[in-house]
């Protein structure tokens, strides 16, 4: 086998779907069929999962620490909400437009983000999200300000399925969108593009030396991830039929970071697993101590770091890699 053929074969092998992944998505489908009482929570998990997958592309693959990822989530939510006001009430069309608009926002702001050190990036991402929050807060004539966008109504999905009050259609819709976009993201990270993104964040100097345009790769992945976050926000707007300033708030950026860290970065499923664990724990804690669950989230973060994130996740990740390599 020539080296070129060997490289192609190894790339193909790395991109094949594993049995564990089939099992994961089968379980997700089963949750839609057999857990009707939990649709609201499950819908939140699917949306948070998509949001966390988007952050994983930025952080786990692109190596960019972002403290303002909610900017894209919130932007997508507002675009989706405002579209219905403008008369575009079909959900899938709205989703598409929100995704494209947020991708453009991501590409535009990537110029600001892809400079300087970690600290500069943290502050720039943070200020971009704060600027958006400030805009949404001030432009009351458009966004409703602190009252939020009320009275958003959607036509039935594809003209066939009406959103019901139990969230059956809503969760099915979110789950389907999540699956399609996840498959797209997964395809992206195992493509040559994805590998070069990993190379660019791992060692920019050497990557540039072998002729890969580092900045362009990072801009690309940042824009794509922004689009995913925007779609997640749009899903929230459509399934909850409400958009408020909360979608842009700082705690959303911090929480999605926490979800991703709980699940582990750099293998995409971490975002989904983290979102599942986080939302379930949050749901339980909110029942126990309605107002103060933030304390326990904070404690969890501190303990996670003190115990050593890397060490904690070394075992599950090794197990995952083993599954990944076999078959």
């Amino acid at each position: 086998m020539t080296p070129r053929a060997r490289a192609a074969a190894s790339l193909r092998a790395a991109s094949r779907w594993r049995p564990a992944e089939y099992a994961f998505w089968a379980a997700a489908l089963a949750s839609w069929l057999f857990l009707p009482g939990q649709y609201l929570l499950l819908n939140e998990i699917a949306i948070a999962g998509l949001f966390a997958v988007s952050l994983d592309l930025v952080l786990g693959y692109g190596g960019i620490v972002s403290l303002g990822h909610a900017a894209f989530f919130g932007f997508g939510a507002y675009v989706a909400g405002l579209l219905t006001m403008a008369g575009v009430a079909e959900p899938l069309t709205g989703l598409l437009i929100a995704g494209v608009a947020t991708t453009l926002l991501g590409l535009a702001t990537s110029v600001l983000v892809l400079r300087g050190s970690d600290l500069t990036r943290i502050m720039v991402t943070l200020s971009v999200s704060l600027v958006l929050l400030e805009i949404a807060n001030r432009m009351t004539w458009l966004t409703g300000g602190a009252d939020g966008l009320q009275g958003i109504a959607f036509t039935p999905l594809l003209g066939l399925f009406e959103f019901d009050m139990f969230g059956r259609v809503a969760y099915g819709y979110s789950l389907a969108v999540l699956f399609v976009l996840f498959a797209l993201a997964r395809r992206l990270v195992v493509s040559p593009f994805g590998w070069s993104v990993r190379a660019a964040s791992g060692n920019p100097l050497r990557t540039a030396a072998i002729g890969i345009p580092v900045t362009r790769r990072l801009v690309g992945v940042y824009g794509f991830a922004a689009g995913l976050a925007g779609v997640a926000g749009a899903l929230l707007a459509q399934t909850s039929q409400f958009v408020s300033l909360d979608v842009l708030a700082f705690h959303r950026s911090a929480e999605v970071l926490l979800m991703l860290v709980i699940g582990g970065t750099g293998y995409l499923y971490g975002g989904l697993i983290g979102a599942l664990l986080f939302k379930v724990v949050q749901d339980r804690l909110a029942e126990l101590t309605p107002q103060y669950w933030q304390f326990w989230i904070g404690l969890l973060l501190v303990l996670l770091v003190l115990a050593g994130r890397e060490r904690l996740f070394a075992l599950p990740r090794a197990a995952w890699r083993a599954v990944w390599r076999r078959a």
Binding site: L59, V65, L67, D118, L119, I122, A254, L257, L258, V261, Q294, F295, I297, G298, L299, L300, L301, V302, L304, V305, L306, R309
Partner: peptide
């Protein structure tokens, strides 16, 4: 830096 950010945000939430 990611760990430091997570750790200090955790402290903020707790406080």
């Amino acid at each position: 830096h990611l760990d430091q950010v997570l750790f200090s945000i955790g402290l903020v939430f707790m406080a």
